[in-house]
Every structure is written in structure tokens, then in C-alpha cells.
Design a binder for these strands. Structure first.
Lengths: 208, 208, 208, 208
DNA sequence: GATGAATGAGGCTTCATTCAT
DNA sequence: AATGAATGAAGCCTCATTCAT
């Protein structure tokens, strides 16, 4: 009656495959990883792999989804906590824990870009990309809006436009970082400059 | 015993192929266009195509090269002309003729991003990408530096860093534009906002 | 300008592949032959094979088509020739050259049956099967009708119904012949019996 | 320590699976149904299914077997009952209860044809097909022979040959019915015509 | 007995590139 | 130079069957 392995184990297996696949995607990029690569990295047979994910796209989306839910969690958490410090919040959202610009970038970012760029003519993928963009956008938008309403930020600029600009900046940085060697992009310095600009646009004076 | 076809003719043929190929790359993207697509669009035989370009990569690079030399030409031309109005120059470089932000983007941009991003693990491609980045960078860098030396721009920030920021922004915008539907990206407004950012960083006040 | 090989050669190559494929289909049946079988029998590479036929179905249909056009040719030829001897014509159509029942059956027949039976739920295949049935039907129908109009045959029975019965009989025989060893089906004797019945139904007295 | 489930229960389970499988085979045909289809339709686990039937072939044969024993039963029953009316018997055997041609055909027939035709090169399957043919043949043969001995039928033709003709007709009709849409085959009319054929061959005059 | 995860052979197709003519 | 037939590596996906629990 009971399955061969516990549900826990199943979940674990799935997670293991996703983890292995993530490494592979980071290493080869989306287009160039093959299901065989994943099979080998995850130590699954072809059939086994397809039992969990019906194709490469599905597998990659599962990984994306996971990342998204993690982020959303963090963002939510933050929003509740320090509802007053919107600037801090914004910085944490952009740069992670410390809330200050550094060189660490999501290693999967290049593959994500690939995924959406090469799939830009595919209806399904396009829609999925849009959905993700919207989600990301709304997170930034809400924080900025909240900050503006709380009087912490100036409302000189449309919160949504600023949110879009943040995403564009982040995307551009990720892109250049994917293509160029670290020392050329100067992630940290560009980030600091962008932060200064945000401060100006939002009328935030001293640094957090 | 002169060649059966003139050198001129060959050049023309090559140019024709490149033009047709450009359309194809715009339509399908780099990864998804096949040599067959190109053959058909350019009305060349398989063998013929390979006579002009030794492979897909070579073909695409030829197209890139052409674009680059065109830009460089324009930039050079501008720099000589109105050596005094650096801000105007900068705007023209970023937004083309009129010098003000609009919705027109390079239709080949998405494919370019694809090309470099999917090839980021390939030594050759990576080097090529870097070279191109350097060239683009130096163009912006030089104008900014010139403006700073002329006292037209503040030298609070490193000219190179600003140049990098411009490229990051352009790349980010191109990326979002490639993935999202026109109405979602708000290219024009984001560009205007970015111009403000530049004004701040360069201490340019009113201007056109 | 001119292709590597003459058009003649091309046609020949195609014909060769079809011939080899026919043997393979006869040997393994439709479902169980793989493109690899065909490749090997025809001495073509995978890609080469796909250059001529875009998949197994396409290949098989080409073979069917060829058979059909041959038959149609023969039938047409006959119809012109001896427009008076409808009975002889009918017999020739059913049993080939000699016009009398024997054991020879189309060796590809089993595969044809397979093709249409296993594909009966596929819209495309179904339509194709119907079309072929209609063609076969009309050939028999026309001869019978002509014979009836010429007064050579009784018109007691609907010509179309008789035509259908002929096809059903032929199909049934082919089916049993495909499945059972020769000595069990008794093709010749069954055919003779069926012919007697036709004679009765059409009021044809002496044998041809 | 009696078995956890009664033998009765097991039999029932087996029967349930077979019934569900029959539907699936009718819907998809033999080649195209997968064990997964069956699992789902029968609500059994993969392992469970394989406990009752060691493979797809085995499962299908079990279904065939069941059908055959049912028929045999009916035939036997008839033969005892009205040993005098052989013609009626024959008609009932061919067309079921009412004993007259109608449109109802065994819905599993197409899959049966598939099964034997695709498996015609497999020794085991071939032997099995022959065995079944023999059984069907002998049933018809016996009735005809009995009728001939009773003087009800002419013995002009070999009873076995007639029996074979009946099967050929039935197979042919099943085949056409499997492939063509209902309205094209004219099952009823063809059947009536075939009955006339039999009457001729057996010298049966008026009758039902 | 039952379960369903895991296996891996087997087929299909696409495409960049080569090369004889 | 030009042609386009031929090549074959590479991927993708399906499914019957096995087997540890």
C-alpha cells in the first residue's frame, strides 16, 4: 500500500536533481546543457530524470520557481519586520543580506538571461518571462510606494518607473557580468553610483 | 584570364548575404536561425554560403563588425565636428541623430545579447565580446573625458565608470526590450530618467 | 551552376531508396521497420535518408503512391483496349495479367494493412486511407457499370455494392494471407469460388 | 494464515483490469496503447498490473481468450439446441442473436487485426493466430458439414473452403470497418450480399 | 501482494559542415 | 566559384519491464 520510498525521500530526490542541474546550468548555460549532462551530474537514468521533469524547460522552470519563492519569502519577511526603514529594505532587496553593493551575483543569472532571450519568440516562454518581470517589478514598486507614502521617499518620480529602472540596471549588470571578466564590469562601483542616484531621486540623505 | 566575376560583384554578393542574414537573425535570434534559413533568405546555395562565411559564427561576426564600423564612423565624425558640445555629443551617441530618447532600438540587439551570452564559455567568443566592449567603452569614455577636461562636465566621477554605467544601462534596456512587449518596458521614460542620472553625475544643468 | 549530379541520378537515388525500403517494409512490416533499417538497406546515411523523405510515414506513402499510379496506369490502359470485354477486364484487375486467380499476392500488402490499421486514429492517415479506398472503389465500379450499360452484365445488383464487395474480399484475403501460412488460406480456391459468385451476380455464363 | 485476499477477489481484480484494458485497446489500438494507459484506466499500479499479466502481449491474449471462450460457448449451445436448422445456426453464428446482418461489429476487432498483423513475423504470435483461426474455422466447418450431411446444404463445395470464405469475408469487413467511416463500408448491405453468395454456394433457397 | 521509482534500450529528428562535380 | 547531396554527431523523448521496500 505504501510506496517504496517515503514522500520525504521523493522530495529529496527531486531537490537533489534540481541542485545538480543548477550546477550544470551554471557551468554550461541553458542552451548548452543537455539532459545527458544533468543525468550524469545528478546520477539519474534518462527515464528517472524524465519522471521528475518532463523536459529541459520544465526542469529549468522548476529551478527558477524555487529561486523566486525563496526571494518572495525574504521580501515578505522584510516588509513585515521593519516597515519603517524602507530604504534599508530596498537596499537589502537589491544587494541581499548586507544591504550594500558587492561583487556577489547570482551565478545562475546568465542562464536565466539566456533562457528568456533565446526563448523570446516562444509564446509560452515569453508569457512566463513577463509574469516573472511583473512579480519582480511589483516587489520594488511596493516598497518604493510605501516609502513615498510614509514620507521617507520623495514622490517626485513615479514609483513604478523607478522600479523598472532598478530592474533594468540589475539586468544590465547581470548581463555584463555574465559576459565580461569581473574586473571589467566593476559591479561594486557601478552599484554604488546607482545607489547614489537613487538617493537623489528619492531624496534620501545620509546612508543607512 | 581575369576572374570571371569582378571583385566588386563578390563584395556585393557578400553584402547581400549579410543583409538577408541580418533579417533572419532578427526574426529567429542567433541560436535558432539555421544556415538553411540564411540560404533561403539570401538565395544562396549551401556551398555558396560557406564560400563567403566559414560558419554561422563567422557570418554573425561579420554582421557585428559592419555595425561596429558604422557606429565608429559616426562617432568619429561627431567628435571632430562639434568638439565643444560634449553633452550634445553624448546624447547623440546614445540615442542617435536627434540626440533624445525614443523607442527605437537596434532590432539586432537581442540576437547580439544571445550571441555573447550563450557563448560566454567559449574562449574565442568571450575575447571577441571583450574587445567589442572595450571599443564601445572607449568611445563613451573619450567623450566624457573630453567634456571633463573642457570643464563642461564635473570630474567628480571617474569617466570610465560613467562610461561603463552607460553601457550597463543600454544593455539592460536592450535585454528588457528583447524579452518584454513594447508597452511594458517604457524605453523612452526610462531613458529620460537615465539622462537625469547622467546629468547628476556630470553636473550638467539645463541643456537641450 | 549545375548541380553535382544529374536530375536523373537524383531520381534514381530516390527510387533506389524506395526499392530498398520496400524490401525492408516487406520483411519487417510497417511498425517494426525503423529508419535505421532503411538506412542500412539503402546504404544511405541518416541525413541522406531524411533529405529524400521527411519521415517514415512520408517514405511509406511515397511507396504506396508509386504502386497506385502503376495500377491506375494499367487499369486505364486496359479500359481503352478492350472496351467490350468487361468481364476479362474485371478479372485482370483483380488477378493481374493472366486474369485468373492464383497465389501471387502483393508482398507489401500486409504492411499496407498495418499502415492503415495502426493509423486509424490519426486524422491524416485516415483521410489518406479513405482517398485510396475511393480510388480503388471507383475503378471497379466503373468497369462494372460499363459492363452493365453494355448489357454484358446483369444490373440486378448495384455496381457500387459489388465493387465494395470485391474490395472487401480482396482485403480479407490479403489479411488472412498476411497472417496465415499459404496452405491454410487457400487463396486460389477461395478466389475461384468468389469468381463463380460474381458470375452469378452479374449473369456472366461461360468462363472467359 | 489464509491469504489476505480471497481467490475470488483476485479473479475479480483480474477481470476488472481486463475490462478496463479492453476499453483502452478499443480506444487506442493495440500498438498505441501503453501499459500506462491501462494502469490508469484500471486504477492499478504498474507493479500490480504486472502481477496479473506479465506483459502487454499476455494481457491482450487474455482478453482474446476470454472472447473466444464466450463465442465457443454460444456456438456449442446453439449446436445442441436446434440441430436441425443449420442455416439459421450459421446465420446466428455470423451475425449474433437475431441471425441477420446489421451494423454491429466487434469494437475490439481492429485491435485484434493489428495484433496479428504487426506480429506476423513473431513465431509465437503467428502460432497463436493460427490456432485461433483453426478454432474459428472448425466451428463454421462443423455446422456446414452437419448441414451437408443432413441434406439441408448442397455439398457441391468443400465445407472447409466455405468456412474459410466466411472468415475471409468477416475479416475483410472488419478491416474495412476499422479503417473507413461507418457510412462508407455499408456493412449491412455487403453482409446481405454475402449471404446471397452463401445461399448460392449451399443451395439454400428462400429461408428467413 | 502491492507499489511506483528507476532503468536503459530504442527510435526519431535536426543541422552544421564537408566535398565531389 | 557554385552547387546541393551526403554525412553523422547530437539531442530529445517514450515506454516496457524490473525490483527494492
Amino acid at each position: 500500500m505504501s510506496p517504496r520510498v517515503s514522500k520525504e525521500h521523493l522530495k529529496q530526490r527531486r531537490a537533489d536533481i534540481m541542485e545538480a542541474a543548477t550546477s550544470v546550468f551554471i557551468e554550461h548555460g541553458y542552451e548548452h546543457t543537455t539532459m545527458k549532462h544533468v543525468m550524469e551530474a545528478a546520477n539519474v537514468s534518462r527515464g528517472g530524470l524524465y519522471q521528475y521533469f518532463s523536459n529541459k524547460e520544465d526542469l529549468f522552470e522548476a529551478i527558477l520557481e524555487e529561486g523566486l519563492s525563496q526571494e518572495a519569502e525574504e521580501a515578505d519577511f522584510s516588509l513585515e519586520e521593519s516597515a519603517s526603514q524602507h530604504w534599508t529594505l530596498l537596499m537589502e532587496l537589491m544587494f541581499g543580506e548586507g544591504g550594500s553593493p558587492d561583487t556577489n551575483m547570482d551565478p545562475l543569472a546568465p542562464s536565466k538571461l539566456e533562457f528568456f532571450i533565446t526563448g523570446r519568440n516562444d509564446e509560452r516562454r515569453r508569457a512566463y518571462g513577463e509574469k516573472r518581470y511583473e512579480i519582480g517589478l511589483s516587489i520594488y514598486d511596493e516598497i518604493i510606494k510605501a516609502g513615498q507614502e510614509a514620507g521617507e521617499f520623495s514622490d517626485r518620480y513615479d514609483s513604478e518607473l523607478l522600479a523598472r529602472s532598478i530592474i533594468t540596471f540589475v539586468d544590465g549588470l547581470a548581463l555584463d557580468h555574465a559576459i565580461l571578466p569581473e574586473e571589467k564590469v566593476r559591479v561594486k562601483e557601478q552599484s554604488e553610483l546607482f545607489v547614489e542616484y537613487l538617493k537623489m531621486a528619492l531624496d534620501v540623505s545620509s546612508s543607512s
